[in-house]
Nucleic acid binder design. Structure first.
Lengths: 257, 257
DNA sequence: TAAATAGTGTCTCTAAGACAGTATGTT
DNA sequence: AACATACTGTCTTAGAGACACTATTTA
């Protein structure tokens, strides 16, 4: 920026073909809870779902697609994604993360579109008051397995697969589980959330490991009330369960130690 | 793609401002070895270095920058990055990975440029026959600490910082160390490579852990010659050291197990 | 024979993993 | 009292962490 301005005159940017747009597409995940019909209190069934919109116009009219929109010159791609997320769901202040670019020639019949993919992790209740935006005929949550079997618009199936792979890895290596949980949660709830995202997750002594292993016990901490008493919840069982919250600590993983 | 073609006529893509280009920038890392001047054979000093080019024209003329180039409509961004990497270094078939997008308004005085950042990990000897490309006045390797202290073009310092953070995490959680090592290497060499990328890496019983810990010993394996004898090397010491190679196994890390 | 790297012995403490057993409080 | 979840006891084996010690070869 410290070059003489007149040099710019010698630069011709438009000698080459330029992209026709830079959309941001968002894979919005949530975990829904459904109560089971049992004799006593029991754990709900938790399922990972993804928000899709039904396209109103050309191309792929009537097909289900990931919500998204074109980025503007005056904003970053993250800004575009946040704007789109807010338009589509009314939520702000959630976990959102960039995870990939899709640039295969011919992927969009409208022209040369380089698409930027984000994933967002949202509480179920935050999606209560969603509505179809201008460019959508309908908005719905689909279980991920169902969405993967659908004939989605563009290369959105590939994007969804990649997003899913990403959050499976991150669920196990970071504390993103907290995006799906209330501030204070039980070990059983945490276990269920991990299971909903990573189907083959299985830890026999989960409660042991996470609460009494030196190297990991810093991840979560017991919740106490003002009197310093341990705070418990019996929302899922007769026997009350200890409540925990995440700390700010994130362990550094390594294959060499 | 199963919509009637004539619908496309109703779509006007150019109602909005479109990007002026989608460059791919590459952070090319290598580890250089310098022999120490000691009485006996000794381990070389290994240093992480990054390849920079000196810009020939406007903007940022004379400044050092990451190599990069504009993507074309007929290729993916990975193709652009590979093309650029090959032009700049003559190498193909190396570890290259996408890691981020840079879209802050005003980041490039030439216009609305959304830049895509890759990192590549290259053997030192592969950079022997590099030369300045058309758009560069000079090409050189810089130690990363030195590069970070320079006044790089555009937002390339930020990109370099992000790339460095990425490879530090990946050095410890994946087997990218093999990109910097020969096919067969000693434990001492592996340790040095990790140290060069992650300065505060320290494992007292490294050889123990990596060779005799059940959960990790699958990462590398001892090399044997045709007769089945253990193969050793004395390139860095009087006492020969066992040679190892990476297997295809990559451990799955988790904070919950 | 000393330099420089490579590797082993040994000890203590903590964690992993399995799994049976106990705890709690409603319907 | 049976259900459904939430833990705890106990045992065995494996790994971490520290650090002094031995091994190998040749300038």
């Amino acid at each position: 920026m410290n070059e003489p301005i007149e040099e710019a005159a010698n630069y011709s940017a438009s000698r080459y073909r330029t992209p026709d747009g830079a959309p941001a597409d968002i894979v919005i995940f949530t975990i829904t809870s459904t109560e089971r019909n049992t004799a006593k209190k029991s754990l709900p069934v938790r399922q990972l779902e993804v928000l899709l919109i039904q396209r109103k116009g050309w191309p792929y009219q009537g097909h289900w697609a990931l919500p998204g929109g074109f980025s503007k010159e005056t904003e970053t791609l993250l800004d575009s994604a946040l704007r789109e997320l807010h338009e589509e769901t009314g939520v702000a202040d959630v976990h959102i993360e960039y995870f990939g670019v899709y640039s295969k020639p011919g992927r969009d019949p409208r022209g040369w579109m380089i698409s930027h993919a984000f994933f967002a992790l949202v509480h179920e209740h935050a999606l209560a008051n969603r509505r179809a935006a201008d460019d959508a005929a309908d908005v719905r949550l689909f279980p991920v397995q169902e969405a993967l079997a659908m004939n989605l618009a563009f290369d959105h199936r590939e994007i969804l697969e990649d997003a899913l792979q990403q959050i499976r890895i991150k669920m196990l290596t970071t504390t993103i589980a907290k995006s799906f949980l209330p501030e204070e949660f039980t070990i059983g709830e945490l276990y269920q959330v991990i299971e909903a995202v990573v189907p083959d997750f299985e830890e026999k002594n989960f409660i042991r490991k996470i609460t009494s292993t030196q190297s990991r016990k810093g991840i979560i901490e017991e919740v106490r009330d003002r009197k310093g008493e341990l705070k418990q919840s019996n929302r899922h069982s007769q026997r009350a369960a200890q409540l925990y919250r995440f700390t700010d600590y994130v362990p550094q993983l390594s294959i060499y130690s």
